[in-house]
């Protein structure tokens, strides 16, 4: 196993590789039965449980502290959401579509909070924000190109104009390295803008749970990056841990 892990350019422990395999297998087999989602859970949370029990010692003290911090952040965010939802459901007769998706919402919120908190620990706020924004810009461009095929073809000018919408993401990525606090404010403004523009503020709609999942996945990274950038001190040089 150690020979195999040495072939991989980035250092990952055997436990992490096994866990990742379980997650991938679980996702692939979910089309056969939803019970294979349990494999995803085992892969995601199993190593952490083993580490807390002291049966797995593959992380050093810094990595353990980063994991504990990320877990605490996920607890805080999920706890806040749980409180709001309890108040919401108990304050009136609520009709929502797909209530079982509440579990999905919590899973997505927990995982994404833990994931981005870990990234901020490993890369620092500026590098994480820059990479998040580059990823957003890149995905947007891929989406536009893919959407402009076949009968949807808008012509080269139309395609170019659509691709220009990715420019703000790349501009913010550059800004986050030079002026992080300004970029942080702009990211928060962008998050609010998309929240309203995409109609995600309408919680009276019965499909607000599905919208909430989109909020977490789409706006969460922007919001998290914005908040993290606001906390970057003047002249602070980010740790280049990766």
């Amino acid at each position: 196993m150690s020979r195999l892990t040495r072939l991989i350019p980035w250092r990952q422990t055997p436990a992490t590789l096994i866990a990742a395999s379980l997650v991938v297998a679980g996702f692939l087999l979910m089309s056969v039965s939803w019970w294979f989602l349990v494999l995803v859970g085992l892969g995601t949370f199993g190593p952490g449980v083993l580490r807390e029990l002291g049966w797995l010692r593959d992380k050093d003290e810094w990595q353990q502290r980063a994991a504990h911090r990320a877990g605490y952040h996920a607890f805080l965010v999920a706890g806040l959401l749980a409180t709001v939802l309890m108040a919401y459901f108990r304050s009136g007769d609520r009709m929502v579509r797909n209530p079982q998706e509440l579990a999905t919402l919590f899973m997505v919120l927990l995982w994404s909070t833990w994931f981005f908190s870990s990234l901020f620990s490993f890369w620092g706020a500026k590098k994480t924000a820059m990479r998040v924004l580059l990823a957003f810009g890149g995905f947007w461009m891929v989406f536009i190109v893919a959407a402009n095929t076949g009968t949807e073809w808008q012509g080269p000018v139309g395609l170019f104009m659509s691709l220009l919408l990715a420019v703000p993401f790349f501009a913010l990525a550059w800004l986050s390295r030079r002026w992080p606090r300004i970029a942080g404010v702009l990211l928060l403004v962008a998050a609010v803008f998309f929240f309203v523009r995409l109609g995600m503020h309408d919680v009276s709609a019965t499909d607000w749970i599905d919208r909430a999942v989109l909020i977490v996945l789409f706006l969460g990274p922007l919001l998290g990056s914005g908040i993290a950038l606001l906390q970057v001190g003047a002249g602070e040089d980010e740790a280049d841990a990766a």
């Binding site: 810094w62 990595q63 280049d240």
Partner: peptide, 11 residues
């Protein structure tokens, strides 16, 4: 420990 830890301490 990992290199990340040494890096973070030095920084």
């Amino acid at each position: 420990v990992t290199r990340q830890t040494i890096l973070s301490i030095e920084k």
